[in-house]
Each structure stands twice: as C-alpha cells, then as structure tokens.
Design a protein around this nucleic acid. Structure first.
Lengths: 139, 139
DNA sequence: ATTTATTCTACCGATTTAATAGATTATAGC
DNA sequence: GCTATAATCTATTAAATCGGTAGAATAAAT
C-alpha cells in the first residue's frame, strides 16, 4: 500500500495543478484544502521542489507552485520518491535492485519470474500516467 | 514490497511442494533448508494451516505437509494473508476496502481510477498464478 | 511414561512512519 | 533599514509495524 506521505504528495500536487495561474500558493492553504498536517506537508513540498517538480518563493507573496508540466510528472516518479520501489521484491526492482539474501539463484527462483511480470504490468501504467491524467479525471 | 514473512511463506510452501511423498516434514528441516528462522517459521506454517493450505501432525513422526493442490494455492491468497491488501490504496481494495479519510469523493478522485487499473492488472497475474507455477519454474 | 514435535501465549528490540516544535533565512513593501 | 511574511532547516517525539525470541502447554507415537 502507498504510505500516507505518498498520498499526501499526490493530493498536494493535484491541488497545485488545479491552480489556473502559476502564482505561489501558501503551504498553509495547501495544508488546509488537502487536509494534510501542515508541518508534514512542508517536508513533502520541499522534496518535490528538490526533485524539480515544484518550485517556491520565500517571503511575502511567496509559496509553492508547479514547475514541471503536469504531463511530465509521472506517477512512478512520485511513488518512487515517497514510497520506494514499485516492484514487490528487491531482486526485481529496476531502481532499487538488491539480491535476495535467502535466494540461491534468481534464474531458478520461481517467484522472481512472476514478480517481474507484476512489475512490468504495474510500470506500464504508473510510468505512463501522469499528474495530467489525475487532473483530467478530477475535472 | 513484500514483507519477509510473505517471502518466507513462499519459500516454505515451495519447499513443501517439492516433496514427492505427502509425508510430514519437520519445521526444523524446513527452517534449515529455506534459511527461515525456526520460531518465526512456526507462526507462518500455523497460519498456512489455519488457512487450509497445509496440515500437520503432532508428536513423533509429525510435521507439516501440503494439503491443497498446488494449483489451488494462488499467489494472491498468500500475499493477502501475510502482506495484506494487493491494492495500493485502501479505497480500491477488494478484500480490505476502507474509504480514504482525506478524499472528498471516490468518483471525483483521479488517483482512485488509476489505482483500480493497477489493482486489476496485478490481480490478473497473482490471482491466476499458483504455487504450481512456482514449482514448474524452479524445476 | 517418555520422547518428539506442534501449538499457544507473551514479549522484545529495531526500524519506519507520521507528526510536531522551534529557530533560521530569504523576500517584499513601507 | 525595519517589519511582516513565509519558506527552510534541525531536532525531537509518538505510534505503529516488522522481525524475531522464549518458554510453557498440548498432542501423538512407541
């Protein structure tokens, strides 16, 4: 399951994505409207900024706003950033690969093969769908 | 990601499934061969017994052995039992459904729709593949 | 009765997740 | 340059989950 942090990130992105003007929105406004604890949201927005998805302005009139085109914010990016691997086993993860310490060999591991299938089918969706798709569905 | 407990369950099932005779196998043997901590394995095997997948005999000559046909032990059953929901959000889970407390409405939630897709694609695989498939792949 | 092996009850430590508090730094406007 | 504003940084805490352990109780075979 996705962590709360991941869901919060999606909610915040959706809220900012819905904004007409690309003018800064206060953290506290995002927090209120998305019902995400403000202090927790702060760190999430900061991570999204570091990832180049959002940007911000400090001081009066400041706040956060979307930097990337919603189409370029793939669900997979957000999930990986806040939730970790998309694969169900470390030994089939593309971005967080680790061998399974219990497994003798990946070639002969029956679970491995199937989990590669699951990973690929999941990726087909989350690596192609983007914030844009979420926004369209919400309209 | 799947928890260690879930992986351990698969390893134990695979080991028991490979057995020719349906004769009881000691917990300690399974523990040794699959490299799963014995005490931890105990509770896993017990759960699998309660689910009707394995059965056991107590006392001398006792141990665990497969009860169900490997074809009838779907990956989804094992994952749900030890790892919880297969869906990535509680609001799209078939077996563990819960409304998202932050969400206003599931109809208008853009994430909801996409996560239903992911769930269905994942289920297509794990609800159809079984222990039998793992055993065939390991041969 | 003794040995063997599962079953049951309870607990523990480490890690992760979720959230909070307070000080600091950057910016706008007067 | 002062003040108000708002993001940023550092640190701590509370709660939940995960992985694992210990020991007593129960059941069965010989």
């Amino acid at each position: 399951m996705l962590s709360k942090k991941t869901k919060y990130a999606f909610h915040a992105l959706t809220y900012l994505g819905k904004q007409q003007e690309k003018t800064p929105v206060l953290i506290s406004e995002v927090a209120e409207k998305t019902k995400v604890p403000k202090k927790f949201l702060e760190s999430i927005l900061l991570d999204l900024k570091k990832a180049g998805i959002l940007t911000s302005k400090m001081g009066k009139g400041g706040g956060y706003y979307l930097l990337k085109d919603p189409e370029d914010v793939k669900l997979a990016d957000v999930i990986r950033m806040f939730n970790g691997p998309i694969a169900l086993l470390p030994c089939v993860s593309l971005n967080y690969y680790e061998p399974c310490d219990e497994c003798v060999s990946e070639e002969t591991c029956g679970l491995n093969r199937i989990m590669i299938e699951v990973r690929d089918e999941t990726l087909k969706i989350v690596a192609n769908k983007s914030l844009k798709d979420i926004l369209l569905a919400e309209k």
